[in-house]
Design a binder for these strands. Structure first.
Length: 212
DNA sequence: ATGCATGAGCA
DNA sequence: GCTCATGCATA
């Protein structure tokens, strides 16, 4: 129905840079997590059970996400605003994020690890924003005009139901299976492959995770 | 708010 | 070729 091939646009390049930055932040966060766990283990062995791992506690994350959203709204700031404002925070290795990501953080539709990595960053932004609440909002619209727009494939309901049925019995079909499914549903093989990837990723999101 | 997609990194 | 973090486009 369209040609979703990746075109090297400035936007994508910028996105790639952000990916690297976020990855670094995630790695740093992971380090903190490991340290926290170790500390908790030591404390536990010492005798007193503590809540040092609160940063990884799904309940704490959920509570924070909720508080974050309420306070963000109280500040009269949109999800998109938060995303771009993060860059102004000047945290090493942390750039801007999209409205999508902020939305997903608030609704816990990110992986547990992703939530843990983003929490300190958003927390920093929140404190900063509330601290400087009396300043005036600057909203410089620096947008370019016109690269080709990406088109989004739309999988019809019947096909989607079939894919879900296949996924139920085999979440990780081989290339051959994917090719067969693609042909039966008259979809591009790559579309089917990506659909399965996204479906698996969806299963791992906090909201659907059975790990708690 | 969410569907389909990209790209880095790993095996 | 997958996972994972992330985003554009759109309902």
């Amino acid at each position: 129905m369209n040609m979703p091939s990746g075109l090297p646009h400035p936007g994508l390049v910028a996105a790639a840079a952000h990916h690297g930055a976020a990855a670094a932040a995630a790695a740093a966060a992971a380090g903190q997590v490991a340290a926290a766990s170790a500390a908790a283990a030591v404390v536990g062995a010492a005798g007193l059970a503590s809540i040092c791992d609160s940063d990884t506690d799904p309940r704490e994350l959920e509570a924070f996400a909720e508080r974050f959203k309420q306070r963000r709204i109280k500040l009269g700031v949109t999800q998109a605003d938060v995303g771009s404002a993060l860059a102004n925070l000047k945290i090493p290795g942390v750039g801007s994020l999209s409205q999508s990501t902020i939305c997903r953080f608030e609704s816990l539709t990110l992986s547990h690890n992703n939530m843990i990595a983003l929490k300190p960053i958003l927390q920093a932004w929140l404190e900063e924003a509330e601290g400087a609440q009396r300043e005036k909002m600057n909203k410089p619209e620096l947008f370019n005009g016109g690269e080709k727009k990406r088109k989004r494939t739309s999988i019809a309901a019947p096909e989607k139901r079939s894919l879900e049925a296949y996924f139920a019995v085999q979440p990780r079909p081989s290339s051959e299976k994917i090719a067969a499914i693609a042909e039966k549903l008259d979809l591009k093989k790559n579309v089917v492959r990506v659909w399965f990837c996204n479906q698996r990723q969806k299963q791992k999101r906090m909201k659907f995770s059975a790990t708690y």
